[in-house]
Simulated assay, not measured.
Amino acid sequence: MHASYYHKAHACIMVFDVQRKVTYKNLSTWYTELREFRPEIPCIVVANKIDADIKVTQKSFNFAKKFSLPLYFVSAADGTNVVKLFNDAIRLAVSYKQNSQDFMDEILQELENFELEQKEETVPGQEPNGSGSPPPC
């Protein structure tokens, strides 16, 4: 994946398909990459397509345990646990954003403020000092 996918993210939902083992195996790669760009954001692991075989909900998935990540069993097809998953993810993201200690968030905020300052200085029809009148001599 590209780093831009993580830009300004405040939470991550990592989904694998319970019917396709390769998607589960890819979680480690995705997680390592995520942590390179966003080391502190909350992350949720999702086992999707439980409607195909409900017995999969009895399985233990070590990836989530290894990293102490919450695991949700969902079915996008029939909606099982989808609303709960997104409600919880939103709650985690808002909490993270309000209480972030991640230096990357501070840097991103400074860049955003800098961009806003630059835009204010270059408003068309307005003098650079923002007063609309010539600068004092």
Rank of each mutant, 00 (worst) to 15 (best):
A3I: 05
A3F: 14
A3E: 03
A3P: 10
A3Y: 14
S4Y: 08
S4W: 13
S4R: 04
S4N: 02
Y5G: 02
H7E: 06
H7V: 03
H7R: 13
A9Q: 03
H10Y: 02
C12N: 05
C12W: 07
I13M: 08
I13S: 03
M14I: 04
V15I: 04
F16P: 08
D17I: 01
D17P: 08
V18C: 14
Q19M: 09
Q19Y: 07
K21G: 00
K21Y: 06
V22F: 03
T23V: 11
T23Y: 06
T23P: 06
Y24R: 12
K25C: 02
L27M: 00
L27E: 02
L27V: 06
T29Y: 10
W30H: 01
W30T: 06
W30K: 01
Y31W: 03
T32E: 09
E33V: 02
E33M: 06
E36Y: 10
E36P: 03
F37A: 00
P39G: 06
E40Q: 12
E40N: 08
E40H: 08
E40S: 07
E40T: 01
I41G: 02
P42E: 01
I44L: 12
I44R: 04
V45Y: 10
V46C: 00
A47R: 02
A47C: 13
A47W: 08
I50F: 02
I50W: 08
I50D: 06
D51W: 09
A52V: 15
K55D: 12
V56L: 01
Q58S: 10
K59I: 04
S60C: 02
A64G: 12
K65A: 11
K65H: 09
S68H: 15
S68Q: 15
L69E: 01
P70A: 03
P70E: 05
L71Q: 09
Y72Q: 02
Y72T: 00
F73I: 04
V74D: 01
V74R: 02
S75H: 12
A76M: 00
A76K: 01
D78P: 04
D78N: 09
N81Q: 08
V82G: 00
V82F: 04
V83A: 12
L85W: 13
F86C: 05
F86V: 06
F86E: 07
N87P: 06
N87T: 05
N87L: 07
A89L: 13
I90G: 08
L92I: 04
V94H: 11
S95M: 14
K97R: 10
S100Q: 05
S100K: 10
Q101R: 15
Q101P: 08
Q101N: 11
D102H: 08
F103R: 04
M104H: 11
D105A: 13
D105W: 15
I107Q: 07
I107V: 09
Q109V: 06
L111R: 15
E112Y: 13
N113E: 14
N113P: 06
F114P: 05
F114V: 07
E115S: 12
E115V: 00
L116Y: 14
L116P: 10
L116R: 15
E117P: 05
Q118K: 09
Q118L: 12
K119D: 01
K119S: 00
E121C: 04
T122K: 13
T122N: 15
V123I: 11
P124L: 11
Q126V: 12
Q126E: 07
E127I: 10
N129W: 15
N129C: 14
G130E: 01
S133E: 05
P134N: 13
P135Q: 12
P135M: 07
P135R: 13
